[in-house]
């Protein structure tokens, strides 16, 4: 069995770079998209095992993209990773698996990834 694949959608280059470094270290293969259009294109090619999604992006924002993904794919787990605190209660309404507030300490994000993909208890 090959490496599990994670798709990261974030409009900021350096953030994508940081995720890429960390997720590689965890042993995942990583796909990067800088906006909704790129993400949708990558999703058409290959279904990832997990999606990490930013909320605030120009054009189509993360919540709208999440809606679009969920309209034909209800199973791929999605983690929302945003700098906003305010939406934290709402993530399961939107159909996401977890909501992590952006922080330089990635322990919480990694914990959620492990829980979702490996069934670890955080």
């Amino acid at each position: 069995m090959g490496k599990k694949c994670i798709l990261v959608v974030d409009d900021e280059e350096n953030i994508r770079f940081l995720y890429n470094e960390e997720l590689h270290d965890m042993g995942f293969s990583v796909e990067l998209a800088k906006n909704a259009a790129e993400a949708e294109e990558k999703l058409r090619d290959k279904k990832p095992d997990l999606i990490i999604l930013d909320i605030k992006m120009p054009d189509v924002d993360g919540i709208e993209l999440l809606n679009r993904i969920r309209s034909n794919d209800t199973t791929t787990p999605i983690i929302i990773s945003s700098a906003y605190n305010d939406y934290k209660q709402d993530f399961n309404v939107w159909g996401a698996e977890a909501y992590v507030v952006k922080s330089s300490d990635l322990t919480e994000l990694k914990g959620e990834i492990k829980r979702i993909l490996w069934g670890d208890n955080p």
């Binding site: 350096n14 953030i15 952006k102 922080s103 330089s104 300490d105």
Partner: peptide, 8 residues
């Protein structure tokens, strides 16, 4: 928060 996340 975004730049701080990258820096940190």
């Amino acid at each position: 928060k975004n730049p701080l996340m990258v820096i940190g």
